[in-house]
Nucleic acid binder design. Structure first.
Length: 334
DNA sequence: CGCATTTGACCAGCGC
DNA sequence: GCGCTGGTCAAATGCG
């Protein structure tokens, strides 16, 4: 079931957050009506939070600290919550994430590097071998297919495929076991960029879309999202409802090299996979230690935090994966 | 015409 | 070894 899939990553230590997307996309919101969410998640590599979402400004170290220090409060989801326990093939990587911040950072970094190498090599190989007409990828049997670091996030949206500023090409769709909703596979269309993402709906709550990114873009976002959130920081801080255009995945390198990519700064919520998932839907908790302080520091600042706190309703949509999985059942059953 | 999507087939990994 | 499932490929099709 799709549940197991997400929860795999979620349990493993990937982060999960739920956002209530404004449904402007349906109502003729005009423009890039794709549901927008500004939450960024990190999965297996706690440290990679930085890699994925480095602080655009100068608070990088803050993020690092917050990410690593939070490791003690990892929330694990009791297996029995899953109607069907399944082996977690994907999560194997996720779950194997080193528990120690340091090791995670190191392994993560090395992994990334290694992965990149492999990706490049793989691409060349593929292009050669693929030309041999679907001779069926002579994948290396010796070593398991290496997966890139992934992170998943949940979005409450009517739109399956969120516009994140990059161009994606759908290359597959599969029915998900125990889920009425199919899973779609996308690949970044940019040459040489092997980033992939999967999009599927939660079987528990159809309104929730789970997007899993795999790999890192090797290029800047080709598309400057309209409504560039970066142009309306206040609106962003004020809440998701005000944001309309797209979900932007920041690219570390380019972000730093191209500070004009303001929209990349629009990530009010960054969850470390190792942060407590029991972030209550209550905004109170957002203010407490259970909510990564760096998030506020980085993205909201003091004034923004105030705005944040005012957005009680919107923030309530950020719920831990546990709740996402449990609540619907209760609701539906009750 | 070029690009994106759809969709059936195929392969790899894993559990039994 | 077999079957199941996830992931990928690529031809066919659709769309601007």
């Amino acid at each position: 079931m799709s549940n197991s899939t997400f929860s795999d990553e979620i349990q493993g230590n990937s982060f999960a957050a739920l956002f209530d997307m404004p449904t402007c996309d349906q109502g003729g919101g005009g423009g890039d009506q794709k549901g927008f969410m500004d939450l960024l998640g990190i999965s297996e590599y706690g440290q990679s939070l930085l890699d994925w979402f480095p602080t655009p400004s100068s608070t990088t170290t803050t993020t690092t600290t917050a990410t690593t220090t939070a490791t003690t409060t990892t929330t694990t989801v009791p297996p029995q919550q899953q109607p069907q326990e399944q082996p977690l093939p994907e999560s194997s990587e996720v779950l194997n994430t080193p528990a120690t911040p340091n090791s995670s950072s190191i392994s993560s970094s090395s992994n990334e590097a290694a992965n990149e190498e492999q990706i490049k090599a793989g691409h060349e190989e593929d292009q050669d071998q693929e030309k041999t007409k679907k001779q069926l990828k002579p994948k290396k049997k010796n070593q398991k297919r290496q997966r890139e670091p992934r992170f998943a996030f949940m979005t409450k949206s009517e739109v399956d495929h969120l516009d994140d500023g990059y161009r994606w090409r759908k290359y597959g769709q599969k029915a998900v076991k125990n889920s009425p909703y199919p899973r779609s596979y996308y690949r970044c269309t940019t040459t040489g960029c092997g980033v992939k993402k999967r999009v599927e709906r939660s079987s528990d709550d159809p309104s929730i879309v789970v997007t899993t990114y795999e790999g890192q873009h090797t290029h800047p976002s080709p598309v400057t999202p309209r409504g560039s959130i970066g142009l309306m920081p206040e609106a962003t801080a004020a809440g998701f409802g005000a944001m309309a255009s797209s979900f932007v995945i920041p690219q570390p390198q380019y972000q730093q090299q191209h500070p004009h990519h303001h929209h990349l700064q629009q990530h009010p919520y960054i969850y470390s996979s190792q942060l407590p998932l029991n972030i209550s839907t209550s905004t109170t908790n957002l203010n407490s230690s259970s909510f990564p302080s760096f998030i506020q520091d980085r993205h909201f600042g003091t004034s923004s935090s105030a705005s944040l706190l005012r957005d009680h309703g919107l923030l309530q949509d950020i719920v831990p994966s546990q709740m996402i999985r449990k609540e619907p059942k209760e609701e539906y059953n009750g």
